[in-house]
Design a protein around this nucleic acid. Sequence first.
RNA 1: GCGCCCGUAGCACAAUGGAUAAUGCAACAGAUUUCUAAUCUGUGGAUUGCAGGUUCGAGUCCUGCCGGGCGUGCCA
Length: 570
Amino acid sequence: MNLYKYVSEKLNEKLGFDAKLETPRNREFGDFSTNAAMVMAKNAGKNPRELANEILPKIAELDFVESASVAGPGFINLKIKDDFLWHAVQSAATITQTTNPMVIDMDYGAYNVAKSLHIGHLRTSIVGDTFNRIARSVGHKTFSWNHIGDWGKPMGLVIAWIERLHPELPYFRDDFNPNTLVDYEIDADELNTYYPAASALAKQDPEFQLHAQEIKAKFQSGHPGYFALYEKFLAISLRTMNNTVQRLNILPFDYDLGERNAAKYLDPVEKILREKNMIYKNDGAEIINVKRKDDNKPMPPYMWRDSRGADTYDSTDLAAVYCRKQTDNPDRIIYITDLRQSLHFEQLFRVADMSGIYPYDRFEHIGYGTINGDDGKPFKTRDGNAAGLDDILDAANDAVTARIASTDKKLDADTIQMIALAAVKFNDLLHDVRADYIFDPKQITSFEGRTGPYVLYTAVRLNSVLRRAGEFEQSANAVEMNADERNLIIELLDFDRTVQSAFESRATDLVANYAYDLCQLINTFYHNCPILRDDVPADTRAMRLDLVQIAANVLTRTVDLMGLKIPKEM
RNA sequence: GCGCCCGUAGCACAAUGGAUAAUGCAACAGAUUUCUAAUCUGUGGAUUGCAGGUUCGAGUCCUGCCGGGCGUGCCA
């Protein structure tokens, strides 16, 4: 139930005017207000307050309006009838389904083979997952694509590194037989050290660098030994990625297909580009000019092949678009990546459009800001290294464990993990996606106030009341409601609208902020309005239990959109 | 140089062009005969970077400046 939309439509219908409904910051002004009179006054050449007073009787005719009054420069403030609110709030947890369902491809995650996840993967995973859940909840069909880095230069480096460690392995022989069983196992943690080590060496040692490039070229053109080795560590990486997905409690990706898969589509894409004469040679590279006459910004060419003749990030991304068009035929393709890739995506969208592969206006890039340390620079661990995703989750886990140790609570490991994860994810979702934010481990681990644990705690309290109440009858009518109950009901009725806005404006932070606002009202209600106590009249108890149930339903849905799990106790 | 993003209290962060700029942390003062005190209530703390403009109304839109971040052909 989207109360805002309902009131807005009824009001506009009644006035025959497309007025904008507002929710006053100060609840004392009313439940809603409209600036209709102020807007109309201009055309009518009348005083806004005068006009407002003329409209007032019409508004009072609406059956859900308790009272309406004129205030300030000409606002019309409305108060909704309690009966109506009570009726409406029964379906507060229902999300209105879109009348125009789309197929949406979402590209987020972008994990890498043989390279552990770092803090940079946090936002794409968390925001991407929540946005995916939001899109699905309003009725769209989505496909999530984890566009894995599993094909390019890093693969050459990793293979070269393994050759350096174990030159005796048969994979490196040109006559390697793919049916050979090789007794070689790689430890997942150790594998994650190979790429950084190889990359560092390549920078110092041109010979190693060259060798890795040769390996990459042979690998991509089908060297059986390299490929067999690749499949070995690919499997390990995929397992590691899967562990991360589970640890983060994000939905499984519909496709774990990245650059290697996209590379299969390079030929048909190149054919299209050549037919349209889009590819030019320049400085040894093959490029596509995407500059427009009216561009007033830098617009470098799209790099189809680099000067060594190798495929690039640019070419596989375009091929991936082609692939998605073939497989899902999506109405929209939405990328959720670091903001710094904006130019790349602008170029990609232009090339896709120019080549007729996919239209420009159906692409979207949601760019998120950087996670910074308290010095305002990209977050690093204390030893100066880029923080690993697991380091962050471990730190949160430790903090929760320490917090519990200081109380007489006893919580199991699963519960601790749920709380720690909520702390990290909620903090990430709380911030405007497009802005940088400061990641403060101290703040993350304080668990007071506007935090994930606060939200979980609120849900746990509600569930606890319901559990203790046992079976109860639904109250038929609302008894008179007090301010705490009424405020909570109004907020509950804002759930549907919040989810709709979050989807429409691609703003996952709206959901997180809503969750917090809702929890504040729930806790105030919980504190001021006893439910199961002996001195509470039966009809009041029934009504409050209903309210608790509805609040629990709405909060559970909200928490679910953020991919958090509610523990039994905490 | 050019382009994009950002500037709100000591810190962090919010505000569909609307009314007294919301909230958290930190500080101080309170609340538990109660369903979980990871809670609740209150106090102090803001010339919304600066200067103009548009508007009945600007933190929000426009212009200029100051400050910061990022991007700007072979890294992804």
